[in-house]
């Protein structure tokens, strides 16, 4: 794939993948603790799904330069960050099939995963700045 990505683009992609990677780890690590919180879907299963999505997103931005991969990763990291902030401060209640994931507390693993998600969002949002080298799947 040429032209080769700039150092800045590479760095941003590595930051994004690392952020998504930690997000994936933290959600998998905590999942079993949240199995008891359930509506139609349990919070534990949502956490496992987040892990799968975050791993796919991280691989997408590391191994491809597809625009779709960046957008997908941005959606994954952004929704995770939005959710953790929302449920930290707002008692949302049960939302359709989703359990009430309100948890009015920060603790190291949760805080770090939120920071990692935020770093990923910033690094991904910066991708268009790398200009014409930003590819879409069909382009060569």
């Amino acid at each position: 794939m040429s032209p080769r990505p700039s150092a800045g683009e590479l760095l941003a992609r590595v930051v994004a993948a690392a952020g998504l990677g930690y997000d994936a780890y933290a959600h998998l690590d905590l999942a079993s603790r949240f199995d008891a919180n359930t509506a139609v879907i349990s919070q534990g299963m949502l956490f496992r799904a987040e892990t799968v999505l975050a791993v796919l997103a991280a691989l997408g931005v590391l191994l491809t330069r597809w625009r779709a991969a960046v957008i997908f990763a941005l959606l994954v990291a952004g929704s995770a960050l939005g959710a953790v902030l929302l449920y930290r401060y707002v008692d949302v209640g049960v939302l359709g099939p989703l359990p009430n994931m309100y948890e009015p507390a920060w603790y190291p693993e949760k805080t770090l995963s939120a920071v990692a998600e935020a770093a990923a969002v910033l690094a991904l949002a910066a991708q268009p700045l790398f200009g014409s080298e930003w590819r879409s799947p069909g382009s060569r």
Partner: peptide
């Protein structure tokens, strides 16, 4: 992707 998916599923099953 397949490998990682398999790994995640395996981890999830093993830890639970």
């Amino acid at each position: 992707l397949l490998a990682v998916l398999g790994l995640v599923v395996a981890c999830g099953t093993a830890s639970n």
